[in-house]
């Protein structure tokens, strides 16, 4: 597969009277053609700075970027016609109608007028296209933003939080739109905080934290490399769960009791659980590995999981990729 988007060693530093802040600290990212690629990171991690830099709105202090094989920002004017993008919240001049807004963009970009009606239909704004944008809800503005990005039939579509403000139906429509676009050969880069959505529709992801890449690859690879060694254990009905838990804890297991089951957090070798319990004639009715989801991987990699009794500040994130969970009790 060919890379549609390549970023290597991207750096952006902001200098102010308060000091120097590295928004991007050698960030790398690669997106292959035809993929829906999730771009994840906590607030202030550098996602939007990356997208703005890529699209020529911000000048980087170092690094290399290429879109469709052309170096940017040098070749941005040539490739801009092949890139549709929305960055951050949708922003439009409120007194123009949606149709006028898109029509003016089409004029500025030399796009066929028929595309305006086509994309308005595609994002579900056909019947409201003659209303002023300032009368739109956030979700409708979001749809308009997506329409503006799709107007020039891009090969690469970059969407920053496209589901922001959408109702559940809208989110589902957006998901199916992304998939359809990817199937038609378009590459989609999707920045979102709705990790369940990303897991559902993305082929690959890049996770950024404190201006650096902390994970990248296909969704399944990223999940696999951070699979937890936690297992869920249920016992036969009527068996005293407390005895079993104390027995396992005495053998070094990290056990968390739940209502009708318990979990063992460091079960590197789950067979050890059955052996220890069976020796005391306690028999297991369920022993299931707890699979990691994107949210838990994200929280682990970025160090943004909430900690009881602490108020995490925006810049309190993990910069370096921690070692994936491996080994553990029982091995």
């Amino acid at each position: 597969m060919t890379a549609v988007l390549e970023i290597a060693g991207l750096q952006k530093t902001y200098r102010s009277r308060k000091g120097v802040r590295k928004a991007l600290d050698g960030f790398d990212m690669t997106v292959e053609a035809g993929q829906v690629h999730g771009f994840l990171g906590p607030n202030g991690s550098g996602k939007t700075t990356t997208l703005r830099t890529l699209l020529g709105l911000i000048r980087p202090n170092g690094g290399r970027m290429a879109i469709l094989g052309r170096e940017v920002p040098e070749s941005l004017p040539e490739v801009a016609g092949l890139v549709g993008a929305i960055v951050e919240s949708p922003q439009f001049f409120g007194n123009f109608t949606a149709h006028d807004t898109l029509s003016l963009l089409a004029d500025a970009g030399g796009v066929r007028k028929e595309r305006v009606v086509a994309v308005l239909e595609l994002v579900g704004l056909r019947d409201r296209s003659k209303d002023r944008v300032k009368t739109y809800s956030l979700g409708m503005k979001q749809r308009l933003a997506v329409a503006s990005a799709l107007l020039k039939e891009p090969k690469l579509l970059i969407l920053d939080e496209p589901a922001n403000g959408l109702d559940p139906g809208g989110i589902r429509e957006m998901r199916s739109l992304m998939r359809n676009l990817a199937e038609s050969g378009m590459t989609v880069v999707l920045s979102s905080h709705i990790l369940g959505e990303i897991q559902l529709i993305c082929d690959s992801v890049t996770i950024i934290s404190a201006g650096r890449r902390v994970a990248a690859g296909s969704v399944s690879d990223v999940l696999a490399s951070h699979t937890s060694s936690t297992v869920r254990v249920s016992l036969e009905p009527g068996v005293d769960m407390r005895t079993a838990i104390e027995l396992l804890r005495a053998n070094g297991a990290q056990v968390t009791a739940e209502h009708d089951h318990f979990t063992v957090g460091n079960a590197g070798n789950p067979a050890q659980i059955t052996r220890i319990l069976a020796e005391r004639e306690i028999y297991v009715s369920e022993l299931t590995p707890v699979s990691a989801d994107l949210e838990s991987v994200f929280l682990e990699l970025t160090g943004t999981a909430p900690v009881e009794g602490q108020n995490r500040q925006v810049d309190q994130t993990a910069a370096a990729s921690p070692a994936p969970a491996s080994g553990g009790w029982g091995q």
Binding site: L57, P73, Q91, F92, F93, L105
Partner: peptide
């Protein structure tokens, strides 16, 4: 001024990055 404050200028620059 309205283009800058409404974000229209940024939109336009995404279309014409010159």
């Amino acid at each position: 001024g309205a283009e800058w404050s409404s974000g229209g200028m940024m939109n336009l620059l995404l279309w014409r990055p010159q």
